[in-house]
Design a protein around this nucleic acid. Structure first.
Lengths: 221, 221
DNA sequence: GCTGATCCTAAACCTAAGTATGCTCCTCTC
DNA sequence: GAGAGGAGCATACTTAGGTTTAGGATCAGC
């Protein structure tokens, strides 16, 4: 009757976290699926890293549970590949017979945890909670940065140049001298910058420049 | 002949890094001492964590080589004690028979590396190089923060309040209304703040406030 | 009771910043 | 070749920021 009755996801809101499980052992996959479902977490399971890569990843807090010993590609190498591909998702490793160097390498590369099988359910849930929280934070920060960058992208080349100089603390007349234009023109640019960047004050703009890591351009010499 | 001929440290400058070694096995201590000396690093060795704590630590880039299995206090507990005592020094762990959970705990607590005995000399040297570099960076940052904090400490309570509001982007008249004083008084405070903080511009001051993590005080209500 | 620090204010003055209007010039695109 | 967008400049005006000089009030410590 209702037009949306075929919508499959009634489990939670659009920001519901997802746990991805990659393991070649179907019994492990099912056990983890049940574990996470039992605490109300959405779960997606995969038999290999390649399968995982083919699925599309919604923009919600998530984490990846990975066996260190995968058939074709080791968990460590897969971790490195994800980083190279620009996919930054917190990883919780599992291992049946891992060693310390593996553990060190995984943790250095940013893994959230490294659990030895058999592990207690609660340890896995704690690790996943921490991982999802970490992802939530990094997504929030990434969102802020990308929104800011979208605004910055609307500036012209000249405006970006002026913005860099303004946020280093130069006065309009100094900026004018530096780039060889009239002070009044600097004022015009500056007004445009404030409007386009939606900055309510100079302090605001300085903070944006900090977040964008804008560098003062070197004087041509 | 020369008045300073009894000076014991001709090995390097005052910023020469130091490697601290804590191990109960004297042969390990001596082997590591020789290893680090062979590459020109200054070394101090200790038989226990207590001994290490009693020595004074100069303000130079340094790191700590720690055996995970110490007689009275485990390396992990010692790591936790150091953190609680506010001593933040990068740690490289060594172990003869450590396990993965130990490794995870150490790495989560910020250890630089975790080497299994026997290790290659080069691996130890690489770990120490990374650890010292990390310490050098954190010391630089700490120095900047403490210098800034020293300046901030010279401000009066009122000046700090005004500084917080200025760096949020409020105009003088808004600040005046907010704290119930005349605009001219805000200007005076503001001038004093700029002088005391040695800020060359508002942009400068905003960056300082960011570094100091100054929060805008909640309006009394 | 004196001193110094802090906080507050006023008047006068000057500089910096920001806005509005109007115009020129150039370049790229349709 | 017309229009759009960017860059630049001038004049005129308003507001914001900042300093100097000269005070008054309060409070802590000697």
């Amino acid at each position: 009757m209702t037009p949306r009755s075929n919508s499959p996801r009634n489990v939670g809101g659009p920001d519901e976290p997802i746990v991805y499980v990659v393991d070649d052992d179907v019994s492990v996959r099912e056990a983890l699926r049940n574990l996470f479902r039992s605490v109300g977490l959405r779960v997606e399971v995969f038999g290999s890293g390649a399968e995982f890569l083919q699925s599309k990843l919604p923009d919600v807090p998530s984490c990846l549970i990975l066996d260190i010993r995968l058939p074709r590609l080791s968990g460590l190498d897969f971790q490195a590949d994800l980083a190279k591909a620009g996919i930054h998702i917190p990883i919780v490793f599992m291992t049946g017979h891992g060693d310390i160097p593996m553990t060190v390498r995984a943790m250095k590369a940013g893994a959230v945890d490294f659990l030895t099988k058999p592990f207690r359910d609660q340890d896995m849930l704690d690790a996943v909670t921490a991982a999802i929280e970490r992802d939530r934070n990094s997504r929030n920060e990434a969102k802020i940065r990308s929104d800011l960058h979208a605004l910055f992208a609307t500036l012209t080349a000249r405006e970006r140049e002026v913005m860099a100089l303004v946020t280093t603390g130069l006065m309009n007349k100094q900026i004018a001298a530096e780039i060889g234009i009239a002070e009044i023109t600097v004022k015009i640019h500056r007004g445009n910058i404030m409007r386009k960047m939606a900055a309510k004050s100079l302090a605001d703009l300085v903070k944006m420049a900090q977040a964008l890591e804008i560098q003062r351009p070197a004087p041509p010499q």
